[in-house]
């Protein structure tokens, strides 16, 4: 039997919002270590990797490893039925063909349960090599969302250039060109408001704006976001999820032909 109880149910609601624009369906792989999900969008240009550690749940039981194929559109409809204050429990029998979501109101005066059919997904799993990135940039997640939204008006591609001075985001198209430069924060008084750059070597890469904008649907999960870049390898955009895990997005660069 599998059962995972999350006191802060709103986190799962936010995770749903972070996944459903990019993915239609995905396999939730459950083990005694926790819940993992890895899936590429239909165009195989981006990949989402979610990790929720068992110890982050109020109660977590996984008798046998379980992979639950879910239609994320349906799952999103069910999670919309949960209030932000609800405790959310996910449970399934071993080799079941359905999963049940239970929403408990904080004072237990309302308990809802929703049963959803599972899908057989032949998920291809990609090996993501451990990489020592040339540049990592940590910045406020709201800032990154704003930059992606503003610059995607100018072009379908965004160039992210990181040097020791700072990081520059640029986009150009029919109406013109936009450049946004962020300097490394001088004093880091409020950690999550800071722009922190670690640079081994300067990097400049081009990415499709539409995927970057999809990634920023995870903004509500964390006050800060971390971008990792190396020449000619996929960008990593990582949002921590409180003390339970993270959601990581990988995006293949556009390279001059």
């Amino acid at each position: 039997m599998f059962e995972a109880r999350l006191l802060q149910g709103s986190l799962l609601k936010k995770v749903m919002e972070a996944l459903k624009e990019l993915l239609n369906e995905a396999a939730w792989d459950c083990s005694d270590a926790g819940i993992q999900l890895q899936a590429m969008d239909n165009s195989h240009v981006s990949l989402v990797s979610l990790n929720l550690r068992a110890e982050g749940f109020d109660k977590y039981r996984c008798d046998r490893n379980l992979s639950m194929g879910m239609n994320l559109g349906s799952m999103s409809k069910i999670l919309k039925c949960a209030s932000n204050e609800d405790i959310i429990t996910i449970k399934a029998q071993d080799n079941a063909d359905t999963v049940t979501f239970v929403f408990e109101s904080p004072d237990q005066d309302k308990v809802s349960d929703y049963e959803m059919k599972l899908m057989n997904l032949d998920q291809e799993h990609l090996g993501i090599p451990e990489t020592d990135y040339a540049c990592t940039i940590r910045l406020p997640s709201s800032e990154f969302a704003r930059i992606c939204r503003d610059l995607s008006q100018f072009g379908e591609s965004m160039v992210i250039s990181c040097t020791k001075e700072g990081v520059r985001f640029s986009a150009t198209g029919d109406i013109g060109t936009g450049n946004i430069k962020l300097a490394q924060s001088a004093k880091v008084d409020k950690e999550e408001e800071a722009v922190v750059i670690e640079m081994q070597e300067p990097v400049s890469l081009t990415f499709a704006c539409r995927y970057l904008n999809s990634f920023t649907k995870a903004t509500s999960l964390s006050k800060s976001v971390q971008l990792s870049m190396s020449p000619e390898v996929p960008l990593v955009v990582e949002y921590k999820i409180e003390d339970i895990g993270h959601v990581r997005y990988y995006l293949a660069p556009k390279i001059e032909d």
């Binding site: 990949l47 990609l126 090996g127 996929p234 293949a252 032909d257």
Partner: peptide, 14 residues
Amino acid sequence: TPVQNDLKEFFTLA
């Protein structure tokens, strides 16, 4: 113009 790459050029099927 820059050409979009596929992730599979970077990550191998495990």
